[in-house]
Design a protein around this nucleic acid. Sequence first.
RNA 1: GGCGCGGUACCCAAGUGGUAAGGGAGAGGUCUGCAAAACCUUUAUGCGUCGGUUCGAUUCCGACCCGCGCCUCCA
Length: 494
Amino acid sequence: MALRLYNTMSARIEEFHPIRDHEVRMYACGPTVYDYGHIGNFRTFIAVDLLRRFLRQSGYKVHHVMNITDVDDRIIHNSARDGLTVQQYTAKYEKVFLEDAAMIGIEEPILVRATEHIPEMANFVAKLAEKDIAYRADDGSYYFRISKFPAYGRLSKKDFSGILDGARVDTDQYDKDSARDFALWKAPKPGETSWQTQIGPGRPGWHLECSVMSMEELGESFDLHAGGEDLIFPHHENEIAQSESYTGKTFARFWFHARFLLVEGEKMSKSLGNFFTLRDLVLKGYKPSSIRYLLASVPYRNQLNFTFDGLQQAAVSVERLRNFRLRLNAGGFASGKNPAMQSLATETIEKMRAALDDDLNTAQAQAAIFEMVRQANTAFDTGDIKKDDVPPLLAALEKFDEIFAVIHDNDTPKMKQVFDWAIAQGREKDISPELREAAQSEQISDAEIETKIADMKAARAARDFKKSDAIRAELAEAGVVVEITKEGIRWRRK
RNA sequence: GGCGCGGUACCCAAGUGGUAAGGGAGAGGUCUGCAAAACCUUUAUGCGUCGGUUCGAUUCCGACCCGCGCCUCCA
């Protein structure tokens, strides 16, 4: 069965078929790099990442383009405030964003930057002006003439037919022909950063960059355009107006929007004190994998209530999956195979695929993997898992992790990175004991741990439990959990 | 005001016109030198409220209550 996705344009779930067979061209609106990214931003980026990964798993070659908005009013304001050039200012936050994205397992898309496409954007405006779709205001700014695009409002389901120019608003004070017309190109105010172009000095409007860069990278018509739900209007509506006026063709076929999240049941806002950047959470000691798991666990079109209790629960859930994998990898199985386990693995893969095919129902995909884990663990305890059952079970786990990317444990080095960053920023007081412990556990190498485990084994063989327990306690101190099982001793970082 | 989404157990959260996935937490148990891990049992006659349609509704319809989003640059 094919992937079925909700399309904001049609307001229905539709079967997703790309224009070109076996190839998906998608564009996602990326960050404006003027500050640290917050967890709301990352919910959207993770939703897009899950989509990208699932499309690839489904056999598509995926061209995933994302823009970096590295010029806008806030950036110009903040860089001037900090005495930096726009480029200096944005370079810092772009780096931060990419580090954060990597930290929670977001695969890096093809990145395009607004400031690297200024001439193309000016050219785009010039072409629209030739068609009288764009017009120049007295100050040198350019606006889009909405009356030239009758389909305006189709994406956001807004009816603009009743709004007449000049009837409601004194358009003169906006220097626009119609109050609804939006800026394509902004003329510089005195002292502002600007670029010299064929249409005069200025900088691109926000909507323009996405139209120009997406079409440049993906063609005039492509498969899917993604972003947060707030972008539906006006950003995406304006992109459509610009692009389709320019080409006369359908711009993007599918419109994919992720819903906003709540924090502890309330809208995230600085004034409520529930505004968190990704790094805030890691500073508090939460693992990147816990954050990713939680953000991925609620289907992207549902409101997700982000809570600290939920983060804790996510951590335990991830642990459960990791423990299961450790158990499978520990070996010690009787030879042969158990048909029940073989079909369990196959059915689980099938269920996960069906769940994700259903408009990326991540919650159901997770339910499927946990069902498998429980049943396989039971079989484990009764000795009903044989040597040949291990590869298919591991394969199902891998399929899951190709999408969710939480099982393979690389939390510790990432947390160490945040720890080092906090020190460098002079924010040592913000480092929680948990993060400190995680960063410390990075100090002890795998080889050192293995040596200590060998000592434990020797002590246990001599039935010197006191010594064995002492080593275990020592490792625990260093952030390493040691578990003694029938199959042998295994360890993991806390 | 216009348009749209949602209210499911202690918490998070799927789902269906025919009788409630999954995870976490709690309680009891099994296993175990100890500790973990793991497993088993248990926790919603109930799915915001009130009506309606139906043999049957949590699922469809209506009203109401509550929460949330967009309505010119917040993911």
